[in-house]
Computed example of a mutant assay.
Amino acid sequence: MNENVNRILVIRAGQLGDTVCASSIIEPLRHRYGDSVTIDWVAKAGIGRVFSRDPRIHKVFELGSRRAPLLFNKGKREVVVESWRNPYDLIVNLELASIFNVMVRLTKAKIKIGMPYRLFEEPPETHAVENLHLIYESFLDQNSMSLAEPKLIGTPAEEVRERYALANHYIALVPSNSHHHLPPEKNYRNWPIEHWKQLLARLSQQDRQVVIVGGKSELGFFEYLKPYPPNVLDLVGKTDFADLIGVLAAADAVVSTDTGPAHIAGAVNTPVFMLIGPTNPKRTAPYKTPHNVVQILCANLPCSPCYHTERFKQCPKNQCMYDILPEQVVEAIALGGD
């Protein structure tokens, strides 16, 4: 491959967890082509703000719609027009769906990796990051591949501590997930409300601050958890992505269900304790590296995982989440994880 690569476009316009996993391409690209390489990113609208304080990313193109064809998609047209003004040296398309094929074909670049020129199959039992490695290995050397781990850069710790009155030591809780719009009894990825309340009560009695985080769209969900016990700091709806990265990076530990901020915690090397039931941790848990702690807390029921199956649709109650007890979480945090 031609090594004269100065401008790169990465395409991964998924949800927050997908984008965090795809951040594993950034350091390998910088190792292969130099720290001064310009990297632009095509992201889902709103999600691209996860790179707002990241000096490694030059520009983010945000797509209001992934599926709308190029003719009716302003974001996709902006990518093409930008490339005709200033062509890319390399495009790395990390999307496997054909909905980006026309955009990739029309975008000017010397080298194009991925769809529509080559389809990389995803083994179903393999972690999302390891599936991305299949694409990386098609053009990156082994030294670059050794850096292929999710990594994010957000607001520095000292800034978020001052802005939000964070203590020197605290535990961050992420009770919600992308199904927050469903009532608690229908949100099968959710840990029971009473379990969260018990955990909050237990942790608030310790000599550490407890910080609760979540998005503005999730405010209704958190009403079920109130009133909060003493020593709890409520940051729900108060942080942008850059500050959320900083808050999770400065925490002693993060407790979360299967949701995007859990992946952020893993990417900033904060110990993360993930409560998981219907989904498959082999694929969706934060990516385990030599630099982080990822402990999966699950009930290991024979019917799990069941997400995206008929068994999931017919499940009368997410017993797999109910059977994870608050005292197990407290004990796991005390032991520091695996």
Rank of each mutant, 00 (worst) to 15 (best):
P150N: 07
K112Q: 02
D18H: 02
V10M: 12
S204H: 07
Y164F: 15
E78A: 13
P183F: 01
S24M: 01
A332E: 15
I135S: 05
E3N: 11
E27W: 14
A299D: 12
N93S: 06
A97E: 11
L182A: 09
I245S: 14
L182S: 11
L152N: 07
G214T: 05
D54C: 02
A265F: 15
V254S: 15
A157K: 15
T239R: 00
L94I: 06
L71I: 14
I245K: 11
I324S: 09
V232K: 00
R32Y: 12
K44G: 07
V247D: 07
V80N: 06
R311H: 12
G214D: 06
A251P: 09
H133I: 09
V211S: 13
I264M: 13
I91F: 06
L325Q: 11
N73P: 05
N269E: 11
H58M: 07
P123R: 03
P124F: 02
N73V: 04
N143I: 00
V5L: 10
V211K: 04
K74A: 02
E95I: 01
N318G: 10
I25Q: 05
A172R: 03
N2R: 09
V5W: 12
S144N: 05
H58I: 04
S217R: 15
P271W: 09
K226F: 11
P55H: 05
D323E: 10
M145E: 14
M115H: 09
G46T: 13
D89E: 05
F51A: 09
N93I: 00
N93Q: 06
F241V: 01
I8D: 10
E158M: 01
H180F: 10
P286T: 02
T107A: 06
G336Q: 11
A128K: 05
L140W: 07
R77H: 00
S146T: 10
I8E: 10
T38G: 09
T257H: 02
N292Y: 03
V129L: 02
I153W: 13
V160Q: 15
E218M: 08
H181E: 10
P290D: 15
L173H: 05
Q295I: 01
S176T: 08
L94R: 07
I26P: 08
S176W: 03
D243R: 05
W41P: 00
W41C: 00
V129G: 06
P116N: 14
R283C: 13
